[in-house]
Amino acid sequence: MSAFIQIFTDGSARGNPGPGGYGIILRYKQSVKEISQGYRLTTNNRMELLAVVCALESLKTNTIPVKIYSDSKYVIDAIEKGWVYGWQKKGFAKKKNKDLWLRYLSVAKSFKIEFIWVKGHNGHPENERCDVLAVEAALGTSLLVDQYFEEVQQHES
């Protein structure tokens, strides 16, 4: 069996929309790295998707296969069932999170990715840790501005 990079992700929003964050664990052989970031106003789905995007963007090589573990049916189904490619063909008309889907499509094309759905809040150690990271980031003091989301929110108000 060839080696692969494991990526575990989770997103959280305290209110939907509200302050949010994501948590990531990257594992390759014996190396483990944790990444998290919080945003002052966002949604849970944006944080779930941004976790996957940021995890892929943080990798230093695209020559090793990647397994992404997520509890987000939104993210996994959109990709695995091909919905995102249909949305792309239609210019993401009436679809949310166009900015993040475009980032995902751009970064993902250079990787060999397998998605694995895990049931959230069900004792999966890495998923539970990612949840802690995401919640801590959402509740933190160094919250970034989710510029695209806040602009869209402002135009819809």
Rank of each mutant, 00 (worst) to 15 (best):
F111V: 06
G18L: 04
E150V: 15
G38I: 07
V152K: 14
N16P: 00
D10I: 07
V145P: 13
N62H: 15
E114L: 13
R103A: 06
V135A: 05
K95M: 08
D99A: 09
R14W: 13
L56C: 07
T9V: 10
H124A: 12
P125A: 03
F111S: 03
V152R: 13
A78P: 03
K98A: 09
I5K: 07
N97P: 07
L56T: 01
G11P: 03
S142L: 14
G86K: 13
I76A: 00
L26T: 05
L105Q: 04
R14M: 14
K95H: 06
A138D: 08
F149M: 10
K94M: 04
V145T: 15
I7C: 03
L56R: 09
T63P: 11
S110C: 10
A137D: 08
D131I: 04
I116L: 13
T9W: 01
N16G: 01
F8A: 03
G21H: 10
K33Y: 12
N127Q: 07
K29A: 11
W83A: 01
K90S: 07
V145M: 14
K94N: 12
H155C: 12
F115V: 04
A55D: 04
H124P: 05
K112G: 11
K94A: 10
K33I: 12
E80I: 01
K95R: 09
K81D: 00
T63K: 15
Y28E: 11
L50K: 14
K33N: 11
G18M: 09
Q154A: 14
F4E: 13
V52F: 05
A78R: 04
H121C: 05
G21N: 07
E156I: 14
S31G: 11
E48I: 06
I79H: 01
A93D: 10
G140P: 07
L50T: 13
A138G: 12
Y104R: 09
N62I: 03
H155W: 12
K33Q: 12
T9C: 08
K90V: 00
F8T: 03
L102W: 06
R40H: 13
R14V: 11
G38F: 05
K89R: 10
T43E: 01
R40N: 14
N16T: 09
A51H: 00
R129T: 08
K109H: 11
K60L: 09
S31E: 15
N97T: 04
G11R: 05
Q147R: 15
R27N: 10
T42Y: 09
L143M: 07
G140F: 12
T9A: 02
